[in-house]
Nucleic acid binder design. Structure first.
Lengths: 134, 134
DNA sequence: CAGAATCCACCCGGATACTG
DNA sequence: CAGTATCCGGGTGGATTCTG
């Protein structure tokens, strides 16, 4: 296991925070973070934004079922909270790129595990629901 | 890295599923799984149910801000989908225990990482939001 | 203790039309 | 291309009351 020496200041602070923060407490600020990411569009968008910056239309096509309204709204929300960076190239026609901040990238590594779990285990979930319907 | 030999049949099947399933496709069954867990109460309850079976009132106290209605509704939903097992001891006064199924336990390992991330990084999120408000 | 049942205000999110 | 603006139906979820 890594020693304290391998942690930089920011990581050390984050670790200290984790010790005191408690998502199960209704008034803990960390609860707001949970509410920010506890929706399907955020769960799909954040992992999707790893890698190269992507444009509005690209994301609209890649995230099946999302509307322009929800895409914009979700991206704005994530941007406001420092997870996504919006880059407007100020050209005409417009060219806007979205990418993850370092903080967002960190989160994406956690959320992609959720997506993978859903993909890997949906058959068992479906089977359970079939069983319950009997 | 583990060889194929180390995977049992169920795990091999899950791996095969993951290769074909795609949460980003609106009509993929795995999307339903994502929608099942993409809400704050599920994200709080599932990791909380690791360890010993717990009772209604226990969960009601431990999950700050949840109402009896949402607790029951979420537990029923998770039970219907095979993630949670409900054990009614058929006594009077009533004694009902909730615990994770093996499938739910598997998921809890993924979701607890999300909760920990929220706890560890909420300060940076808060800072970003403060910055954006300027 | 563990809930079911009802009422209802809020807001989420889709559809549609418009803009620079 | 990358949005914004508006309308609006349906679902979410809190509060309250009742039950075995």
């Amino acid at each position: 296991m890594p020693s304290k020496k391998n942690l930089d200041v920011a990581e050390a602070e984050a670790e200290a925070e984790a010790a005191s923060a408690d998502v199960w407490s209704a008034d803990c600020p960390s609860r707001r973070v949970l509410e920010l990411i506890a929706n399907k569009w955020a769960l799909l968008l954040i992992p999707l934004l790893r890698g190269k910056p992507q444009r509005n239309n690209e994301l609209l096509r890649k995230v099946g079922g999302i509307s322009q309204k929800m895409l914009t709204q979700t991206l704005r929300d994530l941007e406001l909270n420092g997870l996504v960076l919006r880059e407007d190239h100020q050209t005409v026609p417009p060219h806007v790129d979205y990418r993850l901040s370092p903080l967002g990238l960190s989160l994406s590594r956690t959320l992609i595990a959720v997506d993978r779990w859903a993909e890997a285990n949906h058959a068992q979930i479906d089977a359970a629901r079939q069983e319950a319907r009997k």
